[in-house]
Design a binder for these strands. Structure first.
Length: 864
RNA sequence: GCGAGAGUGGCGGAACCGGCAGACGCGCCAGACUUAGGAUCUGGUGGGCAACCGUGGGGGUUCAACUCCCCCCUCUCGCACCA
């Protein structure tokens, strides 16, 4: 009897191939001659451990990278660390570990984890944004933006916790309260740095229409965020004063219908124009509106629209009508000009407000076939129509009146066409330690002075005590703050704020093209070669901020002349979340998967309640630790399952039985090789054109069809789940074929076809399960590693079928199947079909009204 | 409210341009091998005794609809007093 064959030992196999890849710098960039392809996955924050989201993200990227390498592309596939950020600082405060130590230890640990996953990165290009070699260029780029007027300083507010005496990041504010001590958060005004992203609003918007490789929903989110509105700015003179109120409107066609004016609480004009008798009421209302602003934001429908009269009037520039000025709680200071011309007849909010305060309603647009009566209207008419009560534009279509009225106000120098964006400039100052210092010096004589290039980087001092109190931690380091002015050599102070970490991640994909460059952030010719990133892969949570900032940086750096790409990412894949069902013990609350044994709580043996499938999160304990899965099943199984369980862009429901299934599959593949290794090693290669019959012919065809399907699924659709399932089918077919091999020698056609099929399986699984692929390939006798082997090609001869089975429907229901020659003519098929006994029976005594034949596909007969 | 996406067996998911619904995997059932099986192999597995019925519901187009058109329901995500 055959000896017991060697077991699939993922541990030793994976360790040895990882060592081999590392020692040979297997995935170093620039070895291939093919066209370039830049595969990039969003780099992680080094929190300490990878999670399943990372596993999924990087598995997807690795399939692509390995596949393209085997197809001969010149692939750039780098990895790095988004390593500045708040958690490092929190660790320092809570556990007394220096952020740098904490961060670098985490990086070391996570790098080890990623290597254990067998990912094909060019580790020579690794970057960490917290390293001076990286952030030097962050500072350099900041200064370039400053030179160009794209970085500037202005007063702006921060969240301040009075209890902790510290600045809070937006994510540290929960419902207006401090995340740690629940004090009510206050707003503090500080001088802060901004990037003028609004200068690129138009281009950022326009190019969303030129990114066909991005998911539509991401583009829509970005368009919403940019929020372009086209309309007009119009100045209304304040009656009996030199002041004017400027409004923005998207409906200049309704200008003749203005019956009041609404100002945002906090509008600077309020103080100037409010009459003495109204002062008390206005102040009271403004205070209330400001306090309620937050609630307003959360659920606008539930807060009633209210306002208060200021006692002042302004004048409609076209009609001269007196228009009462109100302060209203639904007008936002941050949008437009903070002042709105109110046209109750044609705006629903204004309509409700007018009814509430008995303000007149003046109709200026009628529907095409009716006339509106202000007294009986119960809602605003917001559709286009025909102009009335509008002097010179009466009778015009309202859509045409837009331009006409803009011209009227323009002629009177009272307004002009205007475009407004919701997008605000990007505030990048952070009152934090663990970030990139802003390279600026303040001198009493010389003002704001950039740190000269030769003094970069401004090194983050190590001797800062982190207390979690006060404003910017760097301010406490005297050696850091006190500096000589680069211009006048007098005493000066350094900027003590650091940059938003989104700055770091806005150009890291450019640093990867020349990560060791010391004279520039990256070399222009290398950026020219590699950019744009051909495929970017990451989570949907970065749909707006990171992806918009990266687009902005790309454009700004292009205009500075550092490279020539318009957009950073040609194709974007947003992977779905990794989810798992929640398990809860009636006594012990949420349970980790390991704490559930046979459906019972590990602690008290009570039956566990299984809840909904939700995104993995620590707070609900429905998390699976990649380390545990990798140790138990191996990296190949872990990767395979995360790719097989769902297509990449959909949410993935993690379940351990499914992981077992993937493990079983790899074991089946393993046995395929080791159980017949002798035969496989001695079998000769299948020669194209050999004559092959019967079962061997079928397996040969299946092999080539599988190669075709896997190739197309990866390349055209990223449907890795169906690619894997078709390899499983091939494996099943090989198992079915194996009995045919009994008593067959290595020179038989059966052995050759068998070897061809097994070899195809081994190569086709390489992008998904690279370690076992390498191991089996070498056991098949190859001296060349898989990563240097060409992706298998399918033969059109093998795939061609000369006879096929097609279904025959009668009145739309499948009755029989017939074998017909490929490409057969209708009459020939009809003869075959009508000769069939069952068909004869079914059609007996009926007339065939129609005989539909779709070549090589189907027959449908209509009978009655 | 507006915009985008989705709804298919017990479960995850297939079905590309309108052409055999349920590939593949999990789970389940049966058998084989076994001291044993939670290993492995083989077979079966949408519902129904059947004719037939089945892709969220209702209509329609078509020889033929998960797929196209109209109406409706549900869910997920994004936006939301943006003037």
């Amino acid at each position: 009897m055959a000896q017991i064959s060697e077991k699939y030992d993922h541990r030793s196999i994976e360790a040895s191939w990882q060592a081999e890849w590392e020692n040979n710098r297997a995935f170093a960039t620039g070895k291939a001659k093919g066209t370039k392809y830049y595969v990039l996955e969003m780099f992680p924050y080094p929190s300490g451990k990878i999670h399943m989201g990372h596993v999924r993200n990087y598995s997807i990227g690795d399939v692509l990278a390995r596949f393209l390498m085997m197809r001969g592309k010149d692939v750039l596939h780098p990895m790095g660390w988004d390593s500045f950020g708040l958690p490092a600082e929190n660790a320092a405060i809570q556990h007394g570990i220096h952020p740098a130590k904490w961060t670098y230890e985490n990086i070391d640990n996570m790098r080890t984890q990623l290597k254990r996953m067998g990912l094909s990165y060019d580790w020579d290009r690794e970057v960490a944004t917290c390293s001076p070699e990286y952030y030097k260029w962050n500072q350099w780029l900041f200064l370039k933006l400053f030179e160009k007027g794209l970085a500037y300083k202005k007063r702006s507010s921060v969240n301040w916790c009075p209890e902790c005496a510290t600045v809070l990041a937006n994510e540290q504010v929960e419902d207006g309260e401090c995340w740690r001590c629940s004090s009510v958060v206050e707003i503090k005004e500080l001088e802060q740095w901004f990037f003028r992203i609004t200068a690129y609003a138009e281009e950022l918007l326009e190019h969303t229409y030129k990114l066909p490789g991005w998911p539509e929903r991401v583009l829509v989110m970005q368009r919403n965020w940019i929020g372009k509105s086209v309309g007009a700015e119009v100045d209304f003179k304040v009656e009996g004063s030199d002041e004017t109120i400027r409004i923005f409107t998207t409906r200049p066609d309704t200008l003749f219908g203005v019956t009041f004016m609404s100002l945002a609480a906090g509008h600077p004009m309020i103080e100037k124009i409010t009459t003495a008798d109204r002062k008390a009421d206005v102040e009271k209302f403004s205070a209330k509106a400001k306090a309620e602003a937050k609630a307003m934001r959360m659920n606008p429908e539930e807060v009633e629209k209210e306002g208060v009269f200021t006692g002042a009037y302004c004048l409609n520039p076209l009609t001269g009508d007196r228009v009462p000025v109100y302060v209203a709680n639904f007008v936002l200071m941050e949008y437009g000009t903070g002042a709105v011309m109110a046209v109750p007849a044609h705006d629903q909010r204004d309509f409700e407000f007018a009814r509430k305060y008995s303000i007149p309603v003046k109709v200026v647009i009628n529907p095409p076939d009716a006339a509106l009566d202000p007294a009986s209207m119960d809602a605003a008419y917001v559709e286009p129509g025909v102009m009335v009560n509008s002097g010179p534009v009466n009778g015009m279509k309202s859509t045409d009146a837009m331009e006409a009225i803009i011209k009227l106000v323009d002629d009177k120098k009272a307004g002009k066409k205007a475009i407004t964006f919701k997008l605000r400039d990007w505030g990048i100052s952070r009152q934090r330690y663990w970030g990139c210092p802003i390279p600026v010096i303040y001198c009493d004589k010389c003002g704001t002075v950039p740190v000269p290039d030769e003094n970069l980087p401004v090194i983050l001092p190590e001797d800062v005590k982190l207390t979690g109190k006060g404003l910017s931690p760097l301010a406490s380091s005297e050696s850091f703050v006190n500096v000589e002015c680069p211009k006048c050599k007098g005493k000066a102070r350094r900027e003590t704020d650091t940059m938003d970490t989104f700055v770091d991640s806005s150009w890291y994909f450019l640093r990867y093209v020349s990560p060791k460059e010391t004279a520039l952030p990256f070399r222009k010719e290398e950026a020219g070669y590699w950019m744009p990133v051909d495929q970017y892969i990451g989570g949907i949570e970065h749909a707006v901020m990171h992806l918009l900032y990266a687009r902005f940086f790309t454009k700004a750096l292009r205009d500075i002349g550092l490279h020539t790409a318009d957009e950073p990412f040609k194709n974007l894949l947003t992977q779905g979340m990794v989810c798992k069902e929640i398990t809860k013990c009636p006594e012990h609350g949420y349970l980790y998967p390991e704490e559930v044994i046979d459906g019972k709580c590990k602690l008290c043996s009570k039956p566990v309640v299984v809840g909904a499938v939700e995104k993995m999160s620590k707070s609900k304990k429905n998390v699976v630790d990649p380390d545990r899965i990798i140790s138990h099943y191996g990296a190949d199984t872990t990767r395979l399952f995360s790719l097989f369980a769902a297509p990449p862009e959909k949410d993935l429901d993690w379940n351990e039985e499914g992981v077992e299934g993937s493990y079983r599959f790899l074991n089946r593949v393993w046995r395929l090789v080791v159980e017949r290794q002798e035969l496989l090693n001695s079998a000769q290669a299948f020669k194209a054109g050999s004559s092959v019959e019967g079962a061997a012919k079928e397996l040969h065809a299946t092999t080539h069809k599988t190669i075709r399907k896997v190739t197309q699924d990866i390349e055209e659709r990223f449907h890795f789940n169906t690619a894997i399932s078709s390899v499983m089918e091939l494996v099943n077919a090989i198992y079915q074929f194996q009995p045919t091999l009994n008593g067959k020698g290595p020179q038989t056609i059966e052995a050759k076809v068998f070897r061809e099929a097994v070899e195809a399986v081994v190569l086709l699984i390489a992008p998904f399960a690279p370690h076992i692929s390498e191991e089996l390939f070498s056991r098949l006798g190859s001296t060349r590693p898989v990563y240097r082997t060409a992706w298998p090609a399918w033969s059109s001869d093998a795939v061609r079928e000369d006879e096929l089975e097609i279904p025959v429907q009668v009145n739309g229901k499948v009755r029989i199947r017939v074998r017909v020659p490929a490409g057969a003519a209708e009459q020939a098929v009809k003869d075959i079909v009508l000769a069939d006994e069952k068909i004869k029976e079914t059609t007996a005594g009926k007339t065939i009204k129609k005989f539909v034949y779709v070549q090589d596909k189907i027959v449908n007969m209509v009978i009655s």
